[in-house]
Design a protein around this nucleic acid. Structure first.
Lengths: 116, 116
DNA sequence: CAGCATCCTGCGCGATACTG
DNA sequence: CAGTATCGCGCAGGATGCTG
């Protein structure tokens, strides 16, 4: 066993697998989108709310809190507004997400064909 | 807008984003693990069931069907057994998952520290 | 502007039992 | 061996209204 990576095969591992963990995190509905937006510049809360569009404020809040708790984004208050920004850790994750996005774009037709 | 990628910002895009789509797919609980196992060699159904361990057969079945529908794995029947294997498409996705796994392993302590 | 409180729905995931 | 059928739980995600 023990494949190419720190991947969990036994029951004992299954909750402690870093790869699965982070994959589930970025698999959450709005995470990647938020990270991609913050890659360009910091955003305020309502600004994110408007830009991400059909997300509810409840979910946006929770997603931001989670990303913050993981150290991927930072939240700072200024007198005028709250400011969400990427942390260095979050920024280091970007290339991988970008690569996955490119892979998905390249093979979108193959996947579409397979589904039909 | 329109960040670094084909990422969905508007409501119209949100269900058609290939990147988010594939991320949710591999974010499913057992997907990466199954892909990682099949990266080494083909597996039979019960063989997967035993190896992945705490997964229920119902979920294993559904996960396999989904991965198959996306063209990432193939299912073929021989007289003695059913054989699940990676497709070329699935294999082309592996390096990206490996990269994410390595990233997660490298930064596991930072993430852990952030959560505390 | 930046949220929190409340209520609700769908489905990811699981346990258990049964089938050809 | 390779599944299907049935039942159930918890949580992601959402709608709506209120707050300082």
């Amino acid at each position: 066993m023990s494949p190419l990576l720190p991947l969990p095969v036994t029951a004992a591992d299954r909750d402690s697998c870093a790869a699965t963990d982070i994959l589930r995190r970025v698999g959450e509905k709005w995470s990647v989108l938020i990270l991609a937006l913050l890659a360009e510049r910091p955003y305020g809360f309502n600004e994110l709310d408007r830009t991400v569009e059909p997300v509810s404020r409840r979910i946006l809040t929770r997603t931001l809190r989670t990303l913050e708790a993981d150290g991927l984004i930072s939240r700072s208050e200024t007198p005028e507004r709250v400011r969400y920004a990427l942390t260095p850790l979050g920024r280091s994750l970007l290339p991988l997400i970008v690569a996955l996005g490119e892979w998905a774009a390249e093979h979108a037709d193959e996947i579409g064909a397979a589904r039909a």
